[in-house]
Design a protein around this nucleic acid. Structure first.
Lengths: 140, 140
DNA sequence: CTCGTTGTGATGTATATACAACTGACAGCG
DNA sequence: CGCTGTCAGTTGTATATACATCACAACGAG
């Protein structure tokens, strides 16, 4: 069982790859997940947490807590959105700085990950992720 | 960046696949990771936590806490090992029962996961995991 | 034998994650 | 207008995970 469990194996891959990025990003103190959120927020201007979560296929509760940490770090600014029940996220100066500092490191991590996974591995991951996102799109 | 980050994508895959197993296993109250530990312990007789962790490529601290939970559930029994600094894990009757009940569900989850990932996806995951394990073997 | 090193686990602290339950706000319906 | 259902976000609770550090035992060199 342990020799073939797909859950264990895909988590192993996830842990390993995440480790590469988190190692690289440690000097900046941002995680891969947080960096991706920053990237989405900077790109899409003021955007609601829920929208970011949908774009990144993240649970809303995970998003809520991650945003909280990023706000604590003053990387994100949160203001009430159009309707009183929604919010708007904006990147702050500090957030922008983090993003700029982190980008080359992210690039380096991406390079190292490619190296470790091999081009077929990289392709497989992109393909699988795309398939999952498509499949989940229907649920949203 | 968000469109191509390998860390995000591999974690997405891991989350999705894990979700399939955890859904299937929920009635028994065991997670995929715990089930794998049970499988290793039942197979390898009395075995130390460290050894299990090495076999499953799990951090020793993660292992320590997972074992604690499984002990709390009375699925595992912990006794002092040969040397005073090591321990021996044994599966209990309750643990065996869980394993038996869970196995068909695990099989079903595995089937569903295969279905979702497709045969090329399954192959890619096995291949990547194998490569990572090999690569890490050197570090151990 | 003593000291420094290494192996095994435990623990502190922090993030990511899930699911369920909850709150508040809105929107449509009767 | 008042209900009812839905949407956005939060919070409770639990697991998985990482890294650093600690405690302790065991081992090996001198």
């Amino acid at each position: 069982m342990a020799a073939e469990c797909l859950a264990m194996r895909s988590r192993l891959i996830g842990r390993t790859v995440t480790g590469i990025y988190d190692d690289a990003l440690r000097p900046v103190g941002v995680t891969a997940g947080q960096l991706n959120i920053l990237a989405v927020v900077v790109r899409r201007g003021p955007i609601s947490p829920g929208e970011v979560a949908r774009r990144l296929n993240i649970e809303k509760s995970t998003m809520s807590r991650t945003v909280e940490r990023m706000k604590r770090n003053a990387w994100l600014e949160i203001s009430p959105g159009e309707s009183a029940r929604s919010q708007e996220l904006r990147i702050t100066k500090a957030g922008r700085r983090v993003l700029e500092e982190a980008e080359p490191m992210w690039r380096e991590a991406q390079r190292r990950a490619r190296e470790i996974l091999g081009s077929s591995g990289v392709e497989a991951i992109h393909q699988l992720a795309a398939a999952i996102r498509e499949r989940t799109a229907w649920a949203q």
